[in-house]
Simulated scan of single mutants.
Amino acid sequence: MNFSDKIIWITGASSGIGKALALELSNQNAKIILSSRKIEDLELVKSACKDPLKVKIIVLDLEDYNNLQPKVDEALAAFGEIDILVNNGGVSQRSFVKDTQIEVDKRIMDINYLGTVALSKAVLPYFIKNKTGHFVVTTSIVGKIGTPLRSSYAASKHALHGFFDSLRAEHHQDNIAVTLVCPGFVNTNISKNALTGNGTPQQKMDAATANGIDPKHFAKLMAKAIENKKEEVYIAGAKEKLGVYAKRFYPKFFSTMIRKLSVT
């Protein structure tokens, strides 16, 4: 792979997929900008990178989506340019529709959708001016299918697909690429941090998540998809991928199948 000296900005970089991807790209000699809300965790990721001198930290909160332009200015000043923006930051959900307060629905959309869109819109003029750029978006298999306990999470990820498919079409002539990465179950803390109906974190690991893909392996596959500028890629187990294709080709069968899923 050829990421040598590419300048890659990763949100949600303090743990999970974002951290694993940062370490993978650092091993491939990329220059990395790490972002999340957690400065202490970002410092640990930076120190674990192959060359910490080629890593910068910018603390940001995607929920504060009206104030992201200064963060873009800071990112551009870090290494002088941005080649790839990896929109990886977000929050998941574990609650039934009937039990989820509307404030929680809004918060999930603010972080996952509006935060990602606002940051990308702030970077977009720079990509247009340079006639090159690459948006990478970590969505989810539930960005293609809806499953129990993830109504607003699924909605936010579906929305990202719609937005970035449109952006890709509008800016093809500007040589701007979009890669939508759809993870299945990955062994991270996403389920522990997932919001419940009243907005508090679940604080426990789902069994399916615990048995998910190792983040290091996931990051290698994600890096390959980024390098090849794949438009959309499913990095998931066989069952999750089956769900995507069943929804597309056999929607009635899929609806029956999804109702039988465990909701724990």
Rank of each mutant, 00 (worst) to 15 (best):
F3W: 10
S4I: 13
I7F: 02
A13C: 04
G18Q: 02
K19D: 05
A20L: 09
L21V: 15
L21H: 05
A22M: 07
A22V: 09
E24I: 00
Q28N: 08
Q28R: 12
L34E: 01
S35D: 01
S35L: 00
K38Y: 08
D41I: 05
A48Y: 00
Y65L: 04
L68V: 06
D73C: 12
E74S: 15
A77E: 13
A77C: 14
D83M: 05
L85S: 03
V86W: 10
Q93Y: 09
T100L: 07
T100F: 06
K106M: 09
A118F: 02
L119R: 01
A122K: 15
L124H: 12
K131G: 03
T132H: 10
V137H: 08
T138N: 13
T138R: 06
I141H: 01
V142A: 03
G146A: 15
G146M: 12
G146Y: 02
A154E: 02
A155G: 14
K157D: 02
H161R: 13
H161P: 03
F164G: 13
D165A: 13
S166Y: 01
E170P: 02
I176H: 06
C182H: 15
V186T: 01
T188W: 03
T196G: 01
T196A: 00
N198W: 04
G199Q: 09
K204T: 14
K204A: 08
I213E: 08
P215V: 09
H217Y: 11
F218V: 02
A223D: 02
A223Y: 00
K224Q: 12
K229G: 01
K229M: 04
E232R: 15
Y234S: 09
G237R: 02
E240R: 08
L242P: 06
G243A: 12
K252Q: 12
I258N: 09
R259M: 11
K260V: 02
V263T: 14
